[in-house]
């Protein structure tokens, strides 16, 4: 059983990095959060990266296999998709999704991007 204080700390650090203006905060979240063995940490990290709504952060959760919308955990993938659909300004996310559908080498990643793009167009 994980200590509640640790869970709270991780959540607050990730939320703080989501608000951080420094572009390096994206690499911190990508290096540590998205590579964690813990589903909850990956979920929190993916949400934070989407909330930043920056090209670099959106690219991490859309174009990388095993991260964000392409995560092996359905819970993490669904949470990331839900966060993308909740964005007020979806322009940057749609642009990256289109680019992924057209140019990504992995078919599974392209299919996922296409599905999310369709959902966003409907939302």
């Amino acid at each position: 059983m994980v200590d509640k204080k640790i869970v709270k700390n991780v959540k607050n650090i990730i939320d703080g990095l989501a608000m951080h203006q420094n572009p390096e905060s994206v690499s911190v979240l990508e290096d540590i959060g998205t590579n964690s063995k813990v589903d909850e940490i990956r979920e929190m990290t993916a949400k934070a990266l989407v909330q930043k709504n920056m090209p670099e952060s959106l690219r991490v959760v859309i174009t990388n296999k095993g991260k964000g919308i392409n995560d092996m955990s359905t819970g993490v993938a669904m949470c990331t998709i839900n966060e993308l659909l909740s964005l007020e300004d979806k322009a940057e996310a749609i642009r990256i999704l289109e680019d992924t559908v057209e140019n990504h080498s992995d078919e599974e990643v392209r299919d996922n991007a296409r599905s999310i793009k369709a959902l966003m167009a409907l939302s």
């Binding site: 994980v2 200590d3 204080k5 640790i6 869970v7 709270k8 700390n9 991780v10 607050n12 650090i13 990730i14 939320d15 703080g16 990095l17 989501a18 608000m19 951080h20 203006q21 420094n22 390096e24 905060s25 911190v28 290096d31 540590i32 959060g33 964690s36 063995k37 813990v38 940490i41």
Partner: peptide, 29 residues
């Protein structure tokens, strides 16, 4: 006494949040 998101968001040195996140993630794992 706990880490607040506001404290992290205002840190100029990004290595501190990195270190904190790494330590807490490792402790969780």
């Amino acid at each position: 006494n706990g880490i607040s998101a506001k404290q992290i968001s205002k840190m100029e040195d990004i290595s501190i949040p990195r270190q904190l996140l790494m330590d807490n993630v490792q402790a969780w794992e």
